[in-house]
Design a protein around this nucleic acid. Structure first.
Length: 507
RNA sequence: GGAGCGUUCGACUAAGGGUUAGGUCACCUCCCUUUCACGGAGGUAAUACGGGUUCGAAUCCCGUACGCUCUACCA
């Protein structure tokens, strides 16, 4: 790189940040950090009708949770601000004027109604060379008419004048050479009637002013790339233009098409990074964070969706990702989102994460379930016992709640079919013998005691283990029975046995 | 309709002229575990189609099909 790498993520603050958005951020971030460059957050809030309060803060919070904090943003300042496009209005006007003066853009006075009508009349209408002269603009109208309209403050937009015949060719880092015959593209609006720029003008101007060296965005932008390239040529020169990369899309798991919020609701998985509540509808959409994902796992999973380092390695820390990332190894085709695989990544990361750190992360989940944790050290011990069987942080609740409170229900139905009087007698004796053990016996001693007693009662330990488990846990799952007893200790164990015995005899 | 982009197991992908087309998730079987998991060992399963080029093609070329994206004074 001849100059310092600068990349940007430029979302519009219209709602929650979904998978595709986060992955775009991630690839930007990885690329920047791999090259020792800077990552900028720019807020594209030029559409006042779609602005949603709180969305900008949400984006920043999400980036922080993911560990993808920008070097420059509306909040963290920087030398190229402001970082909100709504605050840069005057800048765009100036460049739009320049384009007009150079003859690369023109005023258009058509009202939205005019356009709607025209679209109805002309099938596949495009505001371009073919119909430009039939419309109301500074090319079709006489100079005096135009200045008259302008003088009267007639609402108008500024449109780019696409050349009649020109082939736009550029090299996309992921896709290679891409060519467009511009005769098929229309005269896009650059500056709206309210004076705000459209995306097309704003990206080009801001990327230039913010010295962006590499511009990455979703594949959905590819068809409008020629407009941007033309603008670069007219305004700043192609030699200043950033290198482009159009990222593949993240698709629905079933069928095809872009993954949407609806798919998540329908199929029962998150699509947004974090919980998002719409301020107007008050509707909350669940996020990966609240669903129980570790940010490391979320990032790891997203990185592997469309990229790999060429080896079989799948679990990467962010540092490893930064070191290994290479945009040229990004896939061209879209990737279907697979929630099962996402959970597998999370499970791997749970296994990898220190129990103390998990304890901190888990606390809010337990709080939410109103499960009281009296001792942190006890929580850490329990985490060690159950972490292997948890895919999500929320799994810890079901996997470990019985360590903190007696199970609400006992699955006696699973015990009853093979229940008999001599087993009842055994458990009564077991409670008794546990009572006689002093202090906090270890799992191995508890097991020895249990087996001796079973032998004395002439019952196979195997026939007794499952009922005992159910008495303690409530159902057929969890770590080793004697590990559980060691953890919850004798008094609680006896209480649970006795309680279950009552339930069993009181059928 | 037009333009652009894409297409390897069910999913994510490796293999950039020569491999029994590999790995991971999911699924199935077995082992471990007197539970559920974890772990271990196996298994099922793919180059969209048709033409070239070549001694040899998943890989290069052409066509076809299919899919997706865009086609707003939204991004």
């Amino acid at each position: 790189m001849d100059s310092k790498v600068r990349v940007r993520f430029a979302p519009s603050p219209t709602g929650g940040l979904h998978l595709g958005g986060v992955r775009t951020v991630l690839f930007n971030y990885l690329f920047a950090k791999h090259h020792g460059g800077e990552f900028i957050l720019r807020i594209e809030d030029t559409d006042q009708t779609r602005f949603v309060a709180g969305a900008e803060q949400y984006i920043i919070d999400t980036l922080n949770w993911c560990g993808l904090t920008p070097d420059e943003s509306p909040l963290h300042g920087g030398a190229y601000g402001p970082y909100r496009q709504s605050e840069r209005k005057a800048i765009y006007t100036q460049y739009a004027q320049t384009l007009i003066e150079k003859g690369f853009a023109y005023y258009a006075f058509d009202t939205p109604q005019d356009l709607e009508e025209k679209r109805k009349q002309v099938p596949n209408f495009q505001y371009s060379r073919a119909h430009r002269m039939e419309m109301k603009n500074s090319i079709s109208l006489s100079e005096s008419e135009v200045s008259e309209l302008l003088k009267k403050n007639t609402p108008h937009v500024i449109r780019i004048k696409i050349p009649d015949e020109e082939e736009v060719v550029f090299t996309d880092i992921i896709r290679g050479e891409v060519r467009f015959d511009v005769s098929t593209v229309d005269d896009k609006v650059l500056l709206k009637a309210d004076g705000m720029p459209t995306y097309h003008l704003a990206v080009v101007v801001d990327d230039y002013l913010m010295k962006i060296t590499h511009a990455f965005r979703g594949e959905e932008w590819l068809p409008s790339a020629p407009v941007h390239i033309l603008l670069w040529k007219y305004l700043f020169g192609l030699d200043k233009m950033p290198k482009w990369a159009h990222l593949p899309l993240i698709l629905k798991p079933e069928g095809s098409g872009k993954l949407s919020k609806r798919d998540g609701e329908r199929l029962g998985f998150p699509v947004f990074a974090m919980d998002w509540s719409d301020p107007t509808t008050k509707e909350t959409t669940v996020g990966f964070k609240e669903k129980g994902f570790l940010p490391e796992a979320f990032i790891n999973f997203l990185a592997m969706l469309g990229w790999n380092d060429g080896s079989d390695k799948e679990i990467f820390t962010i540092e490893e990702l930064i070191a290994a990332f290479d945009l040229e190894r990004v896939h061209k085709g879209g990737a279907k989102f697979d929630y099962e695989k996402a959970k597998w990544f999370n499970q791997e990361w749970i296994k990898k994460t220190d129990n103390k750190i998990l304890a901190d992360l888990l606390q809010p989940f337990f709080d939410q379930e109103k499960i009281e944790i009296h001792e942190r050290s006890y929580l850490i011990k329990v985490i060690g016992l159950v972490k292997d069987r948890c895919h999500l942080l929320t799994d810890f609740i079901t996997q470990s709640s019985f360590f903190f409170t007696a199970p609400a229900t006992i699955d006696t139905a699973a015990i009853l079919p093979k229940w008999e009087e001599k087993k009842h007698a055994f458990f009564t004796a077991l409670a008794q013998s546990f009572q006689e053990m002093s202090g906090k016996p270890l799992a191995a001693d508890l097991e020895a005691n249990f087996k001796t007693l079973a032998a004395a009662h002439e019952i196979k330990p195997g026939d007794l283990l499952l009922p005992l488990r159910i008495m303690l846990v409530g159902s057929k799952f969890g770590p080793g029975v004697f590990d559980i007893i060691e953890a919850i200790e004798i008094p609680d164990t006896i209480k649970r046995i006795e309680h279950s015995l009552q339930l069993l005899s009181g059928k």
